[in-house]
Design a protein around this nucleic acid. Structure first.
Lengths: 147, 147
DNA sequence: CTAAACCCTAGACCATACTCTATGGCAAGT
DNA sequence: ACTTGCCATAGAGTATGGTCTAGGGTTTAG
């Protein structure tokens, strides 16, 4: 049993365009063609496509995915390089996740401020201070006159 | 005390280019100009730039940051809209973080496979199976003959 | 045998977020 | 005054990751 590009698009939630784009970028060296030149995806191909999606969805760049897929094509001898690539990626993702977590905590702080009963006063004070800071430095006040 | 664009670039680790780009995109409506038309950043501006960085680094799009900054300019009356914007963003980020976590677990699974003592055998078997699947479907074998 | 519904490629186009170049004004030291 | 080093804008260029169109072959149901 093989699948057409349309069937694979439905299964993977990638568009046909994206699948062809990935193929053009060398991300699908494992996909064979039938006698008419049509891509024929096997179940094994779908597994590799799933791996591809995991890498893509964790932010791996196309050039790195291409490299990984090239290593997969080479068979078991490339396992050490695959490990190196995946471990580097895993680390980059974890670093990124922690950075996002930290930044999101600042967003949470803002949300708590806005939720507070004194939010209007505090925000108003902040604005008044910013306004005065501009004026104290001889700068035009960029804030609109509140009506 | 005010800061030039160069000093702000050093403090924020954003490039001068990026700062000017953000201004052009309407992300810095709070920054005033001096008599020469030079941007003069105040300490209050730096706080807003910090907020901007938090939003950017959690993946908020420029158009949404612009909207948030426009709300900030309007003063305390826009607090409800700010909450709505930040909460929507916070949710999107959390969803994204969980998706990444799930996908990273699949990467971890691969890494454990490659770490296992039977890695070579298992990967070799996988490749042999994929190869047979192609042949069984009358397709060319895309894998290189291993030497 | 023909029409509908697929498939293909090449290459143009788009969105996003910068990054840089060209050109010129301003400011401070010598 | 002049050189150095900032500042400004407009607009071109780059990188990334798609998305779509044009032109053409294939397959399948009627």
């Amino acid at each position: 049993m093989t699948y057409t590009i349309k069937q694979v698009a439905e299964k993977t939630h990638l568009s046909i365009y994206t699948l062809r784009f990935y193929d053009k970028q060398g991300l699908l060296p494992f996909v064979s063609r039938d006698r008419s030149g049509y891509r024929a995806f096997t179940d094994g191909d779908l597994l590799l496509l799933h791996t591809l999606s995991c890498l893509k969805d964790t932010g791996m760049k196309i050039s790195d995915i291409r490299q990984y897929m090239a290593l997969v094509m080479q068979g078991p001898s490339s396992i050490p390089q695959r490990q190196q690539l995946l471990r580097a990626h895993r680390n980059a993702v974890l670093v990124q996740q922690h950075a996002i977590e930290r930044n999101l905590q600042e967003v949470d702080r803002k949300l708590r401020l806005y939720d507070s009963p004194m939010a209007t006063d505090l925000v108003g004070l902040e604005l008044a201070t910013a306004r005065e800071e501009k004026i104290a430095n001889g700068l035009p006040d960029p804030f609109p006159k509140h009506i």
